[in-house]
């Protein structure tokens, strides 16, 4: 009996100990869900998506619709309702009216929808950190839902990646998320990607400017400096566009090109990234493989510009003699200017 007891005790202790070891593994709570965007501008007096109100624009709401018995509904600076002048009860009522708001509580989430590139990867950033990625459909349309999110003001950003792996510029906008409300952000139109086939083109020869956008989009290409020249083309069913620029009319010198897309003048993207080329005396093909550090100011070589790169620059902020690779504007010190350059190339 005692033998059995000792064996049982030994087994119990051992099993318990091993259970502690194997099951007391830390649980990681890095919760990241799904995502999406549209530009709402708080403070412009216009009731935009994602806002409860804007200045005097209350979206047809009143104290009564907010569950109060009366008073004057106002709008705070952050475009949320100011109910401080609303009255509760009145005429002998009890606090019932205030409770009624609770009946309509739904999940706090944001639903984003828009256009990118056919089958292209779309990345959503929430306050500069990657919150979700998705793949657009063959029609370039995408939708992302970001749930498990707190109420508050957020900066959301989107970028797309075309079939060649070329990234778009970052489309960034603020959204005010309201507790217990689904915020729909639609009309996102990620700017076209762009590349050139030559880094130097012999004056008089053609340079091919190409990229990807939504299918059957009207593409406008602007050549700088002076932005005097606008080329127009249309993307094909795969969203691919290509434009042959005759450099006869351009003087010798450095130029940059950028593009934007529109569909029926109803949906218009912003301008995308800029590519540079030279009109000179010879043709020099564009490099097929350009390092991320050159392309994107990526400091640690992971082809992303994120918190790691920010931290590397932050380490040298206020220190003497930063390395050349970190002093992005080459003024011999790390200042807010270097952080501004990082912010432009940000990928999250």
């Amino acid at each position: 009996m005692r033998k059995n007891y000792s064996r049982f005790l030994f087994a119990s202790v051992s099993i318990s100990a091993w259970a502690v070891l194997f099951f007391a593994v830390p649980v990681f709570a890095s919760s990241v869900n799904i995502s999406a965007s549209i530009p709402s501008v708080c403070g412009n007096g216009v009731f935009d998506t994602g806002e409860q109100c804007d200045d005097t624009a209350l979206g047809g709401q009143s104290c009564v619709s907010q569950g109060y018995s009366g008073g004057t509904l106002g709008c705070k600076a952050d475009c949320t309702f100011d109910t401080s002048a609303c009255t509760v009860g009145g005429g002998g009522g009890s606090g019932v009216i205030g409770v009624s708001r609770g009946y309509f509580i739904s999940p706090t989430q944001v639903v984003f929808s828009g256009r990118a590139y056919p089958s292209g990867k779309v990345t959503l950033l929430k306050d500069a950190q990657i919150a979700a990625t998705t793949i657009a459909g063959n029609d370039a349309l995408f939708q992302v839902t970001l749930s498990n999110i707190s109420a508050g003001n957020y900066i959301f950003s989107f970028y797309g990646e075309d079939k060649s792996g070329v990234r778009s510029s970052l489309l960034t906008f603020p959204v005010s998320v309201i507790d217990g409300t689904t915020t729909n952000v639609s009309g996102i139109f990620i700017a076209p990607t762009i590349k050139v086939d030559k880094e130097e083109v012999k004056k008089g020869d053609d340079i091919i400017i190409s990229g990807q956008s939504s299918p059957q989009s009207d593409i406008v290409i602007t050549i700088s400096p002076n932005q005097k020249f606008f080329g127009k083309t249309t993307s094909d069913k795969d969203g691919v566009y290509s434009y042959n620029l005759d450099t006869t009319m351009l003087d010798y010198g450095s130029y940059s090109a950028k593009s934007r897309a529109s569909i029926g003048n109803l949906e218009i993207s912003g301008y995308g990234n800029i590519v540079n080329f030279i009109v000179g005396t010879k043709n020099v093909p564009a490099k097929q493989q350009v390092s991320c550090s050159v392309l994107f100011r990526d400091l640690n070589g992971d082809c992303r510009v994120d918190l790691v790169d920010f931290s590397i620059v932050a380490y040298w902020y206020g220190r003497h003699a930063p390395p050349d690779a970190i002093d992005l504007n080459g003024d011999g010190k790390v200042t807010i200017v270097d952080f501004s350059i990082i912010a432009y190339y940000w990928t999250g």
């Binding site: 950003s157 970052l170 912010a343």
Partner: peptide, 27 residues
């Protein structure tokens, strides 16, 4: 992202320095 979070740098002076990746357009 704050380069220097807003703080009381000296008496009567609050210093701040931060970035908005992708940029901000709004009023």
């Amino acid at each position: 992202l704050w380069v220097e979070q807003p703080h009381l740098a000296s008496r009567g002076s609050i210093f701040f320095s931060g970035i908005i990746p992708g940029g901000y357009v709004g009023v």
